[in-house]
Design a protein around this nucleic acid. Structure first.
Lengths: 228, 228
DNA sequence: CGATCGCCTTGATGGTCATCAAGCTTGCCC
DNA sequence: GGGCAAGCTTGATGACCATCAAGGCGATCG
């Protein structure tokens, strides 16, 4: 990848790469590939051999799985400056465990797995960053498994809305849905119809107001309590 | 913890500790605590401050969460020689993300978090083992999330049964359920009634035979294909 | 041996949410 | 502007599974 000053600076402030020396960052960038992608463009398929992990710079990517019937469940929606597919770093036979596809055109960096593993060997601090990252991911998974197993669709939608809030938000707050409603629905594991109905019933109860992809939470605390 | 030759040998063959030097293993064991527990005994609660991670030597432990209504979802069933709660190693403010409770009386080792982190710093190979372990766990989570989101209860039960098989099993195989059926039900996120009915209907279709906690899969391939 | 207690099974009922099928709104292009 | 397509909404219906309730079965204990 061409040396790009802006990118190098970006990496220096990314928690995953912050602990690297300039030489290591150089080495990593030399083995990395930049790539633009379009909306709807497939980045990799579930089961494809994996030689890279990624950093999203612009746009939006969905990681998802398909049921045999073709139903889609979005596992993660990636936003700029997030990394994804790190776990292929540590697989014996690295294969992507999900499909990856652009939801909104953008640009990403593909880092070479082997190169990064070599760097990890030299940087315990970066090892720690990776492990901390994976630990966070595991936490998030448990939350999601709990939500899917124990809660109904209304709860999942409310939970999702609350998850969009900036930390510490209170009172009346407006959030923007990060993607089309169909995409959100596939993320919270309901049909678009059910999502629509749930938002309507929350509106009817004067808990939220919906205008396109802008959702206003009228009272954060009240919504938190209203989960059941 | 008292030096215990058998335990030291056990650790040497455990993938997570295999790469340690004798001195490191000594150090780790010196900071570890053995603990026996009874069926139904609480080991730690969701949200408790966490200073240890664990290796199960005998018995069975469930990691679970509770909904506000008291419904239980078992996230993992731990069996001897498995480690658990490793992810607390890397949290800033370490707290157990689930409840832990004995399902079958047994014995475990609690390793000191700080000591192990110190050892990780010295052993890149062990870092790799930990990261590989976490990557596997993440994989398993994806599978579970997919199953919960996209599949019905029948599929989940079949999937669970197939997961009990030794790798490469074919034709007619008998497996033993690793816990009471109520526990299995909480694991696959159905009620005991539904589990019972599902097993019955699988029996009626001559896909399996059930006798107490022994389940005979009459034809592994046929069961795989019959998921829908 | 009969009584009791858990666990599991079986049956009847209802709620939740997916599905199917129209309409509606919005943006886009000729 | 008219026409179309895509996404969203709304309504009617039904499948799936939880719930409630009762009965069976095995283990333990006096």
């Amino acid at each position: 990848m061409q040396s790009d000053g802006a990118l190098a600076r970006e990496l220096r402030h990314h928690y995953l790469f912050a602990a690297l020396s300039d030489a290591q960052r150089e080495r990593l960038l030399a083995s990395a590939v930049g790539r633009a992608f379009a909306e709807g463009e497939q980045l990799f398929g579930h089961g494809d051999a994996a030689a890279c992990f990624f950093l999203l710079r612009r746009g939006c990517v969905k990681l998802y799985r398909l049921s045999p019937e073709g139903d889609e469940k979005i596992m993660r929606l990636i936003r700029p400056s997030q990394t994804f597919a790190e776990s292929v770093l540590f697989m014996e036979a690295p294969r992507y465990p999900v499909h990856g596809e652009g939801v909104e055109a953008g640009e990403l960096i593909a880092f070479d797995r082997e190169t990064f593993l070599g760097i990890l060997r030299e940087s315990f601090a970066t090892c720690c960053a990776v492990m901390a990252q994976m630990a966070l991911r595991i936490q998030a998974h448990w939350d999601e498994i709990e939500t899917l197993a124990l809660q109904n669709s209304r709860y999942r939608v409310v939970h999702y809305l609350l998850g969009l809030l900036p930390p510490g938000a209170e009172g009346r707050v407006t959030v923007t849905l990060p993607a089309r409603k169909m995409v959100i629905a596939a993320h919270v594991a309901v049909t678009p119809e059910t999502l629509s109905r749930t938002l309507r019933s929350l509106s009817d109860e004067r808990l939220i107001e919906v205008a396109g992809d802008e959702v206003t939470i009228l009272d954060v605390d009240r919504l938190r309590r209203h989960m059941h």
